[in-house]
Amino acid sequence: MSVSDRFTAAGLDIRPTRHESFLAYNRFRFLRWATVLVLLSIALYLGVRPYGQPYGGGWAGYTLGTVGALLILWLTWFGYRKRTYNSNSGRLAARLSAHVYLGLALFFVATLHTGFHFGWNIHTFAYALMCIVIASGIFGIFAYAHYPRQMTENRESMTTAQMLGRIAGIDDELRNVVMPLDDTTVAAIERCIETNEIGGSAWRQLSGRYPRCTTAAAIAHMEAIAEGHTIVQEAWRQTLVKLSEKAALLARIRRDIRFKAMMEAWLFLHIPLTFALLAALTAHIIAIFFM
């Protein structure tokens, strides 16, 4: 018996003994469910003829529409579920697994529901919003599968605080080694110490490009004055070494931020558009039944 038995005995798979990705949860249980749902939907669409008169109506059309609408509500509820911690409803990883696969299945269910009738109206608008939400979710799956490993490899066991601490240390060292050099160089190094551009606007975070980086500028300056530095060569060399070390660290932090941003950015589309979708869906249902 182990501590885990208490939970497994209660029928909750709370204590996995090894790491298992949400995508592979319980031997792809929800992928199997989603596949069955899609196959049933296709069967319904092909089997009931004529399908949906007009535009997704009829009992088959209404069935697909109801299933799709309920799925949307259930998928939206994930945001609430994610933040309920004192629950007995099992692992969030299981829920995310279901969210991902049933969310993908929703695309098929809703597409079949439309009966492939599209136009410039509220109905297609709701459908389009749903597609964007699903597409952003697909990017999320890609990000979740792709960036965590890169993030760890990039960090090499350092925490953000440690990296920032090391940069502060290099700044102190730079102040000392640059002293024998000329005033313009000291000023360039001082600028590099004063402004460390990390993070910043959404575009900076996502692209990882910092064209006004003072460290890069300082390195360019050092390379420009490379010739004719015989007496103070050692100071020049040391300054450049420190600058390169700093540039490497800055690049590492910026990559770290970029990876993190990539894993979060899609949510800024996924979540607001979900609420827009709920509004459009409501309008769509009202338009169908009450107008």
Binding site: S2, V3, S4, R6, F7, A10, L12, I14, R15, P16, T17, R18, H19, E20, S21, F22, Y25, K82, Y85, N86, S87, N88, S89, G90, R91, L92, A93, R95, L96, Y144, P148
Partner: peptide, 25 residues
């Protein structure tokens, strides 16, 4: 009742708690 919240709340299955038998695994 549900067990450790950290493991339950992990959306991707990255967090697990292991006992000595589990280490070997």
């Amino acid at each position: 009742d549900g067990g450790p919240a950290c493991v339950r709340a992990c959306p991707t299955g990255a967090a697990i708690r292991v006992d000595p038998a589990g280490f070997i695994d």
